[in-house]
Design a protein around this nucleic acid. Sequence first.
DNA 1: ACAATTCAAATGAAAATGCACTTATAGCCA
DNA 2: TGGCTATAAGTGCATTTTCATTTGAATTGT
Lengths: 154, 154
Amino acid sequence: MEIPSPPSGVRFIDDYLVYLLARAAHQVSSEFHEQLRRRGISVAVWRVLSGLIGSEGETVTGLAEACLLQQPTMTKLLDRMTRSGLVSRSPDQRDRRVVRVCLTAAGRAMAEDLALAAKAHEAELLARHPPAEAEAIKNLLRSILARHDRPRRG
Amino acid sequence: MEIPSPPSGVRFIDDYLVYLLARAAHQVSSEFHEQLRRRGISVAVWRVLSGLIGSEGETVTGLAEACLLQQPTMTKLLDRMTRSGLVSRSPDQRDRRVVRVCLTAAGRAMAEDLALAAKAHEAELLARHPPAEAEAIKNLLRSILARHDRPRRG
DNA sequence: ACAATTCAAATGAAAATGCACTTATAGCCA
DNA sequence: TGGCTATAAGTGCATTTTCATTTGAATTGT
């Protein structure tokens, strides 16, 4: 049976910027996240892997920030990823409070493999837009990020 | 002590559309989510409340989709929100598989109160951009949403 | 009318997350 | 130097989410 939508015109959320952004992010990533799910890799693990590509060693807090997770969540995620051999932790030379997180060889292999798939997916996404718009999208997002980059730990 | 960033130029993630969108969504919503946290309201609860504004009754699956949650997550969230008196469930007249979810009076009061705060926050956000860009943002997001609206349950 | 299929919602056990707090180290400055 | 504050990471428990499955109802095809 057809389930009718409510009679009202526009829902609150359909004209609400924060929601439009969240929805766009969710929708745009859903196809790639589906690929991850098929491979048995969680979004959080993929974010850590991708955040470590090309890095000599990130801090736990820095990774948490980059991956949009809280620090204790990251600590526990890194515990699991260490157990499964994707990353390694080592003490920072200069500051003994700091832990440096790196990809292992296996982690790098997985990260680079997934990054290829991610870039291929991105190309597909952008191909669905007229070239001028595709160009504009990333620039606009970078503008948003720059303008709303709020002071650390508000 | 200053923690130096890695020597490399641009991180993979900083030129990856899906990440830019996720980060923008996260960053833009963080201030409002902070307001929610102060009031002891979770993001998920706010999403359900805002999704029900002006509605005669949404389905559980429809709400889950609108709130970017999975259906079992929504069922349990609605259990809690029902217990705390924010929403009510009632059987659909035409299709007995379907449950219609509505705001209670208390839920509507909270939803409308928060929606005011959300719109005020949105106005602040948009004020940080030049008017032409502010105008462009929502349109671009709607364009993205329209182009990547994928077939239900792929 | 009836089996087979599809669909909506709920359930249960396992895993992940959030929050407040602890521990250890570093920076500051009198 | 000694003590105060700030910062990085880890911990424990309660809460929430996920995944796979179940239940009940509607639709489809014969």
